[in-house]
Simulated scan of single mutants.
Amino acid sequence: MKDAVKAICRIWRPEWQGMLMGRLTYKKGNGENKAYEEIIRDGKLLRVAVRGRESGEFLELILSKPSAPKEGEKRPDEAAFWKSFSADEVRAYSKALGDHNEIHYTEKPVVSGFQIFESVMEEYPSDGMKISFHHPVFSGEEVYLMEKDQKIEGYTDQLCFVAVRS
């Protein structure tokens, strides 16, 4: 997956600063090693799709400008503690991938959607996964997971992301 993420980071545009990930879709390499990239702007949304040059992995993400925070679904009691990302971990991860979004380098950085995605994939391996982000996860916050069939829900105090394995 790192190959496809690095491909997205290579085409990063300064005007994307501060944008948040709305959805990320990943498919394991299919043997097609032809590099591919596509950027489509649709109003407030930005769709970026790449195929990793080395691995053939496909990664598509939807970015949007942050809007006023909405109160999300509260964490259920049955959700189990999963992990917490330190500010240093967030900054180091983003730097290693070449992710230039400033929101990952503040005093209390937003955890990269790529970092969350990769961590979920380590815990729940799959040939493909789609993850939708509902609320940012900040460094130092405790993240809880709850699995329902093929869905993995991630919470802090409220719903932050939903991953669906394919």
Rank of each mutant, 00 (worst) to 15 (best):
P14K: 07
F161Q: 05
E78Y: 06
S94Y: 07
A163N: 00
E142G: 14
H135T: 10
K151R: 14
N33M: 15
H104I: 08
E15C: 12
V50P: 07
V111C: 09
D88R: 12
R53K: 15
P136N: 05
V48F: 04
G140P: 01
A7G: 12
G52D: 06
T156S: 08
F114S: 06
H135Y: 04
S94F: 05
M146Y: 08
M121G: 02
D77M: 12
M121Q: 02
N30H: 08
E118N: 03
G18M: 12
S67C: 10
E37N: 13
F133M: 03
L61P: 03
R53P: 02
V50I: 11
R13G: 01
K6Q: 14
D127W: 00
F161E: 00
N33Q: 12
T156A: 09
L61C: 08
L97E: 02
L97T: 05
E73I: 15
S94Q: 04
V110Y: 03
E122C: 07
E73K: 14
V50M: 05
E107Y: 08
K108G: 01
K27A: 13
S86K: 07
P125T: 03
A92D: 14
E54I: 13
V143H: 07
L63T: 04
A68Q: 13
V110G: 01
L159P: 03
D3M: 09
I8D: 01
E122N: 11
P136R: 03
D149Y: 12
F138L: 15
F117V: 02
R75D: 01
M21I: 12
E147F: 00
F114Q: 04
I152Y: 03
C160F: 07
E153L: 15
P14S: 09
F81Q: 06
E32I: 15
M19D: 00
Y144E: 04
Q17C: 10
A68S: 10
S84G: 12
V143Y: 00
M21S: 13
F58W: 13
M129F: 02
W82R: 02
K151N: 13
L159R: 08
R10V: 07
N33W: 07
A79W: 04
D149K: 14
A35V: 13
